[in-house]
Computed example of a mutant assay.
Amino acid sequence: MTEWPLYDAKNRFSAVVDAAVAGEPQRVTRRGRPAVVVIAAGEYERLRRLEKANAPSFAELLLSMPDQGEELERLKVVPRRVEF
């Protein structure tokens, strides 16, 4: 993976994009630290689909909540008085 300081990436943005489209992710640094990675749109979509396919369902998330055999504390709510 090629690494570009932000200044150079700005000045040579077309080269950064061309390399990413060719299949080579491009890392851009800011003040010497990694800031972003530029990847091709197709690769981004592939990663999004993969992430979505591996994401747990809402039911799986609920079932994975720790159960310690105790009841949850319920808040006491006083209903609001509505006058017409």
Rank of each mutant, 00 (worst) to 15 (best):
M1P: 10
M1C: 05
T2S: 10
T2C: 04
T2R: 15
T2Y: 02
E3G: 05
E3M: 07
W4C: 04
W4S: 03
P5N: 12
L6R: 13
L6P: 02
Y7R: 15
Y7I: 14
D8M: 12
K10G: 02
K10V: 08
N11P: 01
R12C: 03
R12L: 08
F13P: 05
F13S: 15
F13M: 15
F13D: 11
A15N: 12
V16A: 02
V16H: 02
V16G: 03
V17Q: 11
V17G: 02
V17C: 10
D18V: 12
D18Y: 04
D18G: 05
A19E: 12
A19Q: 11
A19D: 10
A20E: 11
A22W: 06
A22M: 04
G23Y: 14
E24M: 11
E24R: 13
Q26D: 00
Q26C: 01
Q26A: 01
V28Q: 00
V28A: 00
V28G: 00
V28R: 00
T29Y: 07
T29L: 13
T29C: 09
R30D: 01
G32H: 13
R33I: 07
A35S: 07
V37R: 06
V37S: 03
V38G: 00
I39H: 00
I39Q: 00
I39W: 00
A40P: 06
A41G: 03
A41V: 12
E43N: 01
E45C: 04
E45Y: 04
R46P: 03
R46G: 13
R46M: 03
L47P: 02
R48G: 02
R48D: 09
L50I: 08
K52Y: 07
K52D: 14
K52M: 10
N54M: 14
N54L: 13
N54W: 09
A55Q: 14
A55I: 02
P56N: 02
P56G: 04
S57I: 08
S57F: 05
A59V: 13
E60L: 05
E60M: 08
E60V: 07
L62E: 04
L62W: 01
L63C: 02
S64A: 08
S64P: 04
S64Q: 01
M65Q: 03
M65K: 06
P66R: 15
P66W: 09
D67P: 09
G69S: 00
E71Q: 13
E71I: 12
L72W: 12
E73L: 14
E73H: 08
R74F: 10
L75N: 09
K76F: 06
K76Q: 15
V77L: 10
V77M: 03
V78N: 13
V78M: 15
P79M: 01
P79C: 01
P79V: 00
R80W: 04
R80G: 05
R80F: 04
V82M: 10
V82F: 05
E83T: 13
E83P: 03
E83C: 03
F84H: 08
F84G: 05
F84A: 10
F84I: 07
